[in-house]
Structure formats: structure tokens, C-alpha cells
Simulated assay, not measured.
Amino acid sequence: MDLFSVSWAALRAVVAALPDKDFERPSGCGGWLVRDLVCHLIIDAQDVLITLVTPADAEPTVDAVAYWQIEDQPPTGQDPLDALTVRLAAAYGEPRLLRFHLDDVGGAAGRAAALADPVALVSTRGEVLTAGEYLTAYVLEWTLHHLDLLAHLPDVPEPPAEGLARSRGMLERIAGVAFPASFTDKDALLVGTGRREPTGAETAELGGAATRLPVYLG
């Protein structure tokens, strides 16, 4: 749960420091500008708040790894919900309003996570899991979207090292592969989720595992 807070705080700090012009640059999410991704982060923060106050009285059905669904295709931004995010982002009009809303709702989500009982059962997406497992799943979400933010912004600080390492471990369990030690955590996440193509040397190192990659998470 501490890692959730560290990863989330780092991501929000990056958004807070972005110049206005960077909101119009492409992000690492297919079909989305940086402003669209920031709008998605606001929706994510709302989901965290909703989930943490949605108790469940059944046994857990998933953990932080099984929480993730594997999609058949990478996101393109054309899905109805993705397209709605683009329209919502445009409706803000000014980057400062996106920053303000993320700081407001995102700060509340961070405080709620810090106060949550890690063993409390919560419900989301038709599944039941502990609050601790749910927040751990979001370490992967924050880390991947942090990488998406800096995809075309080389001067943006990278995600915390501990978040990258934890996310790599979760992705390996989701995909059922072990990335070679020569892969950095960042490269494992980018290649493993289809955010960039592996080089020929990387494909050779992956061997048979290359056939199980990438995995598109939803």
C-alpha cells in the first residue's frame, strides 16, 4: 500500500509540472494525447474512491494479478469509453483545469488509500478482493501510465524504481513469462505490454516466451 502512494504521488507530481504545451503531445496510449491520459487518471482516481467505499461480504475472487484482464487487441482510442475520455478531456478546455481536478480528486484517492484497511474486502468490476490487493494492482496501472506520459517527453522523470520492479513482477505473473535479466524493468514493461516492439536481440533472448507477448491489459 505504501508503494501505491509512492507511485501515485510521483505520477501526479509529473502532471502538475507539465507545461501547457505538453498536454497536446501524443501519449503512449493509442489514440490519446497527454490531456486525454490525464483525464483518464482523474477517472481512475474516482474509481479508487468508489471501490474503497464499496464493501463486499463474499470471499475474494481475484488478487492483484488476477484482477487484470487480457484483451485481444491493443487500445486504439476508438472504444466508446476511450472516445468518451477524449471528449471529456477536450471539454476541460485548459490544462490548468485538468491539473486542478487531478490534484483534487487524486489527492482524495491518495488519502483514502492511506487510510484503507488492507484486509478489508471490496468489490469492483464484479470481483471481490482485499483493499491491499486492489491497491497493489494499481501500482501497475500508475507505473504503465507514467511510462505513457513520458513516451514523447524525454525530460519527464521516470516512475519510481520500486514501482517499476513491482510492476515487472506482476506482469511476469500475468503473462506467464520471465523476462531475461538483461531487460531493464522499464523495457520489460514496454515490450511486455506492446508499448514498443522488441529488438531482434530482445526477441532472441525471450526465446519461446516471445510468442506469449505482448499482453494487452484491461
Rank of each mutant, 00 (worst) to 15 (best):
Phe4Gly: 07
Ser5Ala: 15
Ala10Asp: 13
Arg12Gln: 15
Val15His: 05
Ala16His: 08
Ala16Arg: 14
Asp20Ile: 03
Glu24Ser: 10
Cys29Asp: 01
Gly31Trp: 01
Leu33Gln: 08
Val34Met: 07
Asp36Val: 05
Val38Asp: 05
His40Met: 05
Asp44Gly: 15
Asp44Phe: 11
Ala45Glu: 03
Ala45Trp: 06
Gln46Glu: 13
Pro55Ala: 04
Ala56Thr: 03
Ala56His: 03
Ala56Val: 01
Glu59Pro: 08
Glu59Asn: 05
Pro60Phe: 00
Val62Glu: 10
Tyr67Cys: 04
Pro74Asp: 01
Thr76Asn: 05
Gln78Asn: 13
Pro80Thr: 06
Leu88Gln: 14
Gly93Arg: 12
Glu94Cys: 04
Pro95Gly: 02
Arg96His: 08
Leu97Glu: 10
Leu102Met: 10
Asp103Asn: 07
Asp103Ser: 08
Asp103Cys: 02
Val105Cys: 05
Ala109Arg: 09
Arg111Met: 10
Ala113Arg: 05
Leu115Lys: 09
Pro118Thr: 01
Pro118His: 01
Ala120Leu: 07
Val122Asp: 00
Arg125Asn: 12
Gly126Pro: 13
Glu127Thr: 13
Gly132Asn: 06
Glu133Thr: 00
Thr136Leu: 15
Thr136Met: 15
Trp142Arg: 12
Trp142Pro: 02
Trp142Ser: 13
His145Met: 12
Leu150Ala: 06
Leu150Asp: 00
His152Met: 11
Pro154Asn: 06
Ala161Gly: 04
Ala165Arg: 15
Leu171Lys: 04
Gly176Phe: 13
Phe179Trp: 00
Phe179Tyr: 02
Phe183Asp: 07
Lys186Ile: 12
Val191Gly: 04
Glu197Met: 11
Pro198Leu: 01
Leu206Arg: 10
Gly207Ala: 09
Gly207Pro: 12
Ala209Gly: 00
Ala209Val: 01
Gly218Met: 06
